[in-house]
């Protein structure tokens, strides 16, 4: 297992370096941070703009290879450069990573778990009412892009708030002003955070749920008719434990591969959710930076996303190895 993981890691490292370099080169050629200075009133003299841009390594008069080498040397030291306003990118990257993580973690866990359970349940009840209902629901959910889902949930939440007369749901930012200074103190602050988390988390969970539900249902259907489940029944296990211990476990193995594939989609969904619900995470930063022409931020977030996608791939490899003994012994198909 160790050798297998090491080979994977080496391959991933080369891919990350290439992906990060390509992202930087793309951003540096396509974006124009100079425009930010030229739009100012009064317009600063060209020499001043040039000096400032050169100081930040954003000057488009400097040859691309030279800028790339300066940037690359910085990244190797763990420094992703500065934004066009001169703030260090690395510190902000970490701060925003935690914001995004808070948002994505609960939604992913809830979405994966519920999706797998619903999919497995639908497969066991194939062709009956629960299966048809779950299949229809997952089709509709899969067809709704994240931004449509978010807007729908917001409208529904508005209705609930109006009907109950209480602000049950909040959908702007992470916290409300002054919540932790109320009568309940820190507890009120926590409650306020949770209320802000409900809608964005639900959006992410629903989007994930549909996907996992579809995959899990078809995996489970393949497994349910397999010989080893019949054997488990024949040796005297109840239907329930035969399906859960032998069926579900085997059907989960291919899901680990899908986890790696859908991780990129998850990051992308996070971009929409952050932008719509006003969370100041990585996704929002990326979109704003593209419109501002902030080369270093775009490159840093791209690099981070590449690392994250590959880490997800690694996690899925490890999970695969844990669930499927054949991978460890090298007999994998």
């Amino acid at each position: 297992m160790a050798g297998f993981l090491l080979r994977r890691l080496a391959n991933y490292a080369v891919l990350v370096v290439l992906a990060a370099s390509l992202a930087y080169l793309l951003a540096a050629t396509a974006l124009h941070p100079r425009a930010n200075f030229e739009d100012r009133v009064p317009r600063p003299p060209d020499a001043v703009v040039d000096a400032e841009l050169s100081r930040l390594n954003l000057n488009d008069e400097v040859p691309l290879t030279e800028r790339y080498l300066t940037w690359g040397a910085g990244v190797l030291r763990g420094d992703f450069g500065r934004t066009w306003q001169g703030e260090p990118v690395t510190a902000e990257l970490w701060r925003r990573t935690w914001v995004s993580l808070r948002l994505l973690l609960a939604g992913t866990v809830a979405g994966c778990a519920l999706g797998v359970l619903l999919g497995a349940y639908a497969a066991v009840r194939q062709h009956r009412a629960p299966d048809r209902l779950i299949t229809l629901g997952s089709y509709l959910l899969l067809s709704a892009p994240v931004f449509v889902l978010a807007v729908l949930l917001q409208s529904a939440a508005q209705k609930v708030n109006d009907v109950t007369g209480v602000q049950v749901f909040e959908w702007l930012g992470e916290t409300g002003p002054g919540a932790s200074e109320g009568t309940f103190g820190a507890l009120g602050g926590l409650g306020d955070r949770v209320r802000h988390l409900l809608l964005p988390t639900a959006t992410i969970a629903l989007a994930q749920l549909a996907l996992y539900c579809r995959y899990q249902r078809s995996m489970m259907l393949d497994v349910l008719t397999a010989d080893f489940v019949r054997t488990a029944r024949a040796k005297g296990l109840r239907h329930r434990s035969a399906v859960l211990r032998h069926g579900l476990r085997t059907a989960l193995i291919p899901m680990t591969t899908y986890f790696a594939y859908t991780f990129g989609l998850l990051l992308l969904g996070g971009v929409f959710v952050e932008k719509i619900f006003g969370w100041h995470g990585l996704g929002e930063w990326l979109i704003d930076s593209i419109t501002r022409g902030d080369v270093h931020v775009v490159a840093a977030v791209n690099c981070f996303a590449a690392v994250a996608v590959l880490l997800a791939g690694l996690v899925s490899d490890v999970l695969h190895g844990t669930l499927d003994p054949r991978v460890r012994t090298g007999d994998a198909p």
């Binding site: 990350v16 974006l31 990051l267 791209n302 590449a306």
Partner: peptide, 11 residues
């Protein structure tokens, strides 16, 4: 590995 959406947005 390259996040497609990001690249299209940058372009």
């Amino acid at each position: 590995v390259l996040p497609a959406f990001l690249v299209v947005a940058v372009l």
